[in-house]
Design a protein around this nucleic acid. Structure first.
Length: 230
DNA sequence: CTCTGATCATTA
DNA sequence: TAATGATCAGAG
């Protein structure tokens, strides 16, 4: 992201944000790069967050890397989501770090997960694992907010996970737990450690974890949208 | 160092 | 081949 165009001002309304998305919908990354005069990396192997950061930049997201929704004034979180040629979600979606220390642990409504998921602009990126970055396309953005039952299910996952951690059972918490939200490692590497408290109340070092949305969850959002479109 | 943006790579 | 575990780069 070294040669991106100047900073773009944040959209002043939801309508403006959607308008901006519309400008890019259907375009290949190559075309967008040409329009805005920047160069793409060869692939994502060493630049995994490239497309997400690019989308933030060209849409005018302004939260930096703070733990709050990307479009601060609109209170909307932006998530790019890779979709293959068959319309299938290809990856899970990272949401935020799992709070492993007591100071950061809070209720669902106060959580970063809730703050981000209560309103999300999903930006599908039409991709294939083997497709060059330049040929991947921005799809139609979906402004989404979880319906009540979904919100309740997300909270149930969150509460369940936090409870396990609070009682010191992080070690027995596996990625298969959680209906929609799962917990997986989120670190630079296997050696990156942070602190948590074990079942005996002792402070111990552990791998940092993140909350991720399962692909089946985001797939349902995409599918619902397609069904209701037009 | 921690958290953001995520996808890569290996296992089951 | 889907799910789990591991990893990469940039910002602050």
């Amino acid at each position: 992201m070294t040669d991106l165009p100047q900073r773009i001002h944040p959209p002043s309304s939801e309508a403006e944000l959607l308008q901006r998305c519309q400008l890019f919908a259907g375009l290949q990354l190559k075309q967008i790069a040409q329009m805005l005069s920047f160069t793409l990396p060869e692939n994502l192997k060493r630049d995994k967050g490239y497309v997400g950061q690019l989308a933030e930049h060209i849409l005018g997201a302004n939260a930096g890397n703070l733990a709050q929704p990307d479009f601060v004034a609109l209170d909307i979180e932006l998530k790019t989501i890779p979709i293959n040629s068959q319309g299938k979600v290809m990856e899970s979606t990272y949401i935020s770090m799992v709070p492993l220390s007591h100071e950061k642990q809070c209720s669902w409504r106060e959580s970063v997960v809730y703050a981000k998921l209560k309103r999300v602009l999903w930006l599908p990126i039409e991709s294939e694992r083997t497709m060059p970055l330049s040929k991947r396309r921005f799809g139609q953005a979906i402004l989404w907010q979880p319906a009540e039952p979904i919100l309740n299910a997300l909270q149930a996952d969150y509460d369940y996970i936090l409870e396990k951690i609070v009682v010191g059972e992080l070690q027995s918490l596996s990625a298969s737990e959680g209906k929609y939200l799962q917990v997986r490692p989120k670190a630079a590497n296997r050696q990156a450690l942070t602190e948590t408290v074990n079942a005996d109340g002792e402070v111990v070092k552990t791998l940092p974890r993140g909350f991720y949305l399962r692909p089946a969850f985001t797939q349902a959002i995409i599918d619902d949208w397609r069904q209701n479109a037009y």
